Simulated assay, not measured.
Amino acid sequence: MTLEDLAARQRAFAEARAWGPFHTPKNLVMALSAEVGELTELFQWLTPDEATSAPQDPAARARIEDELADVLLYLTRLADVLGVDLIAAAHAKIDRNETRFPPNIGRAALDR
């Protein structure tokens, strides 16, 4: 499944429930933010090692997967409503970052 397929499935899901009037950019951004908060909560008080190993626990993994899915679905829906190609936007951002952050620049700072 491509991101376009996912957006189409999410669009059809929303249309079947007549959620269009509620899926404004403002509402979708707020819902996305709430879901990111729920994902954050799963890791909030964990040590770095605990956070890294959390997905090895089946119950924790299920919660993490659910919250990641919610974030992806709201982000995909928001991009669809705004007419943004997420893949193209991500590639453009990486292109800009490659200019802003040349290879090994962080390494030089660590070597000082």
Rank of each mutant, 00 (worst) to 15 (best):
D66R: 01
K26I: 01
T40L: 10
S53N: 09
A79G: 07
L3W: 12
F22C: 03
A69W: 10
T40F: 10
V81E: 06
A8N: 14
A34E: 15
V84F: 13
T24E: 09
A51L: 05
D111P: 08
N97V: 04
R11F: 01
T40Y: 10
V71A: 09
E15R: 01
A16H: 06
I87L: 14
R17F: 06
W19C: 02
N27D: 10
A7N: 05
P55H: 08
I105Q: 05
T24H: 10
V81A: 02
N104K: 11
N27T: 06
T52K: 03
D80E: 15
A34Q: 13
N104L: 12
E65Q: 10
I94W: 11
L86P: 00
L42D: 06
W19A: 00
P58Y: 13
A90T: 04
T76W: 13
V84T: 05
T99D: 02
K93M: 09
E65W: 10
A7R: 12
D111Q: 14
V36L: 15
T52S: 04
A16D: 04
T47E: 09
E4V: 00
H91Y: 15
P21F: 11
A90E: 13
D85K: 11
A34F: 11
R107D: 15
T76N: 11
P102F: 06
L68C: 05
A51Q: 04
T47C: 01
P25I: 00
D80Y: 12
A14S: 03
Q10D: 13
P55L: 05
A79F: 11
L32C: 02
N104R: 12
M1V: 09
E35L: 07
P25K: 02
